[in-house]
């Protein structure tokens, strides 16, 4: 029985052998499960860290830009200028400061996310009707409570739209981190290219797109949970 199986395997080389080099190969996924899992975890970790860092930087910047219109042009202009720099060039520019590390990738990706995040936060906060703001003030809301209890919830749909765009592009961009060997699934894609390994390349790319879709769905769901008032209106 075992002999039969062995001879069958010998007659038919695995689908990821050099001879066949097929694009889709279940055998590869089984054999390299550990490697794929590790790359996926690194990918998720870098993406999440970058987006969270992006939000943490973008929020105060958006508040400053709203408070001081004089600085708004500067903040948005700088963020857009960073966005203009290709990812493959921004990573090396960070290296003298952060070295060859995951931090380099996370910071670079967070900087990219800034452009979309700051813009959407500004747009969102501006979309709050001034009447609502005034009534809240009239009810005795201070600046902080006004921001967190009235303005932010109302700005949420616009902010979340920006967060979706930022997150989905960050997932895709993480692959470029393979330049400094911290690219999550990008490392597998790069290896797939250099060793002409199609199954590895295809599997990693599909996982990338799946992660992007998954995050997108999660954010939409979170928004649905966070904004119960929008549901009643539509029904």
């Amino acid at each position: 029985m075992t002999l039969l199986a062995a001879s069958a395997a010998a007659a038919e080389p695995s689908c990821y052998s050099r001879l066949t080099n097929e694009w889709f190969c279940g055998q590869y996924v089984r054999d390299y499960q550990q490697e794929i899992t590790d790359a996926t975890i690194q990918h998720l970790g870098i993406t999440i860290a970058a987006v969270v860092l992006g939000v943490l930087i973008a929020f105060p910047l958006a508040l400053i830009a709203r408070r001081l219109p004089r600085l708004e042009t500067g903040i948005l202009g700088t963020a857009t200028a960073i966005y203009t720099i290709p990812s493959l060039a921004l990573l090396p520019l960070m290296v003298p400061f952060t070295g060859i590390s995951a931090t380099t990738v996370v910071i670079a990706l967070a900087l990219y996310a800034l452009t979309v995040l700051v813009r959407s936060m500004l747009e969102g906060l501006r979309s709050v009707p001034s009447g609502v703001r005034e009534s809240a003030r009239g009810m005795g809301y201070g600046a902080t409570r006004l921001l967190f209890l009235v303005e932010l919830p109302l700005a949420l749909p616009v902010i979340m739209a920006g967060l979706r765009v930022a997150t989905v592009s960050t997932v895709a961009l993480t692959t470029v981190g393979s330049l400094v060997s911290y690219g999550g699934l990008g490392n597998l894609i790069k290896d797939g290219v250099t060793s002409n390994f199609r199954a590895e390349l295809m599997t990693a790319s599909i996982l990338c797109v799946l992660i992007a879709v998954l995050f997108d769905v999660l954010i939409v769901f979170a928004q649905w949970l966070l904004t119960p008032w929008t549901r009643g209106v539509r029904a």
């Binding site: 989905v168 592009s169 895709a172 692959t175 470029v176 393979s178 990008g186 894609i189 790319s205 797109v209």
Partner: peptide, 8 residues
Amino acid sequence: GRAVPTFA
């Protein structure tokens, strides 16, 4: 266009 990595 956004979800597919350029690199891939």
